[in-house]
């Protein structure tokens, strides 16, 4: 890991572990000794970016901790997260079927991470919209894998798609499509 990506990564982790009253952007600026333009030129950055560590850090905090999201895999422009089955997340005790909310969160996370892996830079972003189609329920007891992919970015908007499965990638349980906007681009 180069010094630059190391610094960026630490800033990223720090952003996600900040106390709620502190402004993340302020800390990023204070901690960052390089310019965004330099970071944007780092074409090799995606291969050195370590989503596993970032996600494990994020999993120890906030909503991800509550639902138990885990790192599963990544590549250029895509990211996979795992959602282990939990009885605290079911929609109906009798059937044991997972609620759709945690799957929505899983896909929101996987697709938003895929944008950083696509661009190789960390730009603050917010979900504009996300549509999810539930093809069938996840089988009770199975870990759900969420695959998020960023397939296009403009100056302001990132376009994403993804799917989730519960063991067999050829038999998806859900598909998603959506957009994010870069909050600092306006």
């Amino acid at each position: 890991m180069t010094v630059l990506s190391r610094i960026l990564f630490d800033s990223l982790c720090f952003t996600f572990t900040l106390g709620p009253k502190r402004k993340a952007t302020g800390v990023l600026h204070r901690e960052r000794p390089t310019k965004w333009s330099e970071l944007r030129r780092m074409n090799e950055f995606p291969s050195e970016f370590d989503p596993a560590r970032l996600i494990e850090t994020m999993s120890r905090n906030g909503h991800n901790k509550l639902i138990g999201t885990r790192y599963h895999g990544h590549g250029e422009g895509w990211c996979e997260l795992a959602l282990p089955y939990s009885e605290t997340l079911v929609t109906d005790t009798a059937s044991g079927i997972l609620a759709s909310g945690p799957i929505f969160t899983l896909m929101d996370m996987a697709t938003s991470l895929s944008i950083w892996l696509k661009t190789g830079t960390f730009q603050p972003q917010a979900t504009l919209d996300l549509r999810i189609d539930y093809l069938r329920p996840a089988r009770p007891g199975n870990t759900v894998i969420g695959h998020g992919e960023c397939y296009h970015v403009t100056k302001s908007i990132a376009f994403i798609r993804g799917h989730a499965h519960d063991g067999d990638p050829d038999k998806p349980i859900a598909h998603v499509a959506g957009t994010y906007f870069f909050t600092a681009s306006a």
């Binding site: 952003t15 905090n61 906030g62 909503h63 509550l66 609620a99 909310g101 969160t105 929101d108 996300l130």
Partner: peptide, 19 residues
């Protein structure tokens, strides 16, 4: 609560969708 937090200071979009 901390359990619905996404980025610092904000509710997670997934928690809002679940709601």
């Amino acid at each position: 609560s901390d359990g619905v937090r996404g980025r610092p200071g904000f509710v997670h979009g997934g928690a809002l969708a679940g709601l």
